[in-house]
Each structure stands twice: as structure tokens, then as C-alpha cells.
Amino acid sequence: MPIEVNGKSLEVDEEGYLSNLNDWEKDVAEIMAKEDGIDLGDDHWEIINFLREYYEEYQIAPAVRVLTKAVGKKLGKDKGNSKYLYELFPYGPGKQACKFAGLPKPTGCV
């Protein structure tokens, strides 16, 4: 069940995660977010961009703590916690934000 982005048909898995990391573009995130009923603002993009940068370097999404710390450093201490992230991504920063960012879903006991 591929998704349509800018006239291209992109392969996703059963849970809606991009099958091919390189297919990602900004509109992918916009379209996925719309499906989940979320309007992406600058706050969301800060997180999505960080996830993509981290993934580029380490080939894995960052741990929740790594993410919150990075957010805290960048956006101020009051935002460096998972509560803030859950407000942005109600289904969980690790999973929902990863999906928008085109990263594979974190697996395991998480």
C-alpha cells in the first residue's frame, strides 16, 4: 500500500513506515502527518530534522533521552522532556516522529 507524494508512488510497510529511506522528502512528512491529524509546525520540524541528522550519523534513531537532551539544549530546558515531545507527537516521539522523518521504526522492547 504505497503512498502518493508529488505524483510519485512510494513504498511503505504495513505500519506506514517508508520502505526506502532515500524516498524521503519534506512532503512525505507533511502527508503522513496529515493522515495522523497533525499539522506540522516549526516545533515538529526541529525534531524531525534532528532525527534525520542523528540517523545519518549513527544509522539508528536517537534514544529518547538523547533526543530530549538535544531538544533541551536547542529549544530551552522547559522543552527538554518527553512530555513536550508527546505533546508534539501524541503517539510517541520515538515511533511517530520516526515515521514522519522517514526512518525505520525502532524495534525491540520499546
Binding site: 550519523e57 549513527y58 544509522q59 539508528i60 536517537p62 534514544a63 533521552r65 538523547v66 537532551k69 525502532p106 524495534t107 525491540g108 522492547c109 520499546v110
Partner: peptide, 17 residues
């Protein structure tokens, strides 16, 4: 590991801790 967490990411995470 279950996550697919490679060694450099693990090292970075532990450093952060």
C-alpha cells in the same frame, strides 16, 4: 541487539548518560 543499535550509537548514548 533488538534495536539494531550499532556500536558508535551505543557509545554516544552511554557518553550522554
Amino acid at each position: 541487539n533488538n534495536l539494531g543499535l550499532p556500536e558508535p550509537a551505543l557509545a554516544d548514548t552511554l557518553e550522554g548518560l
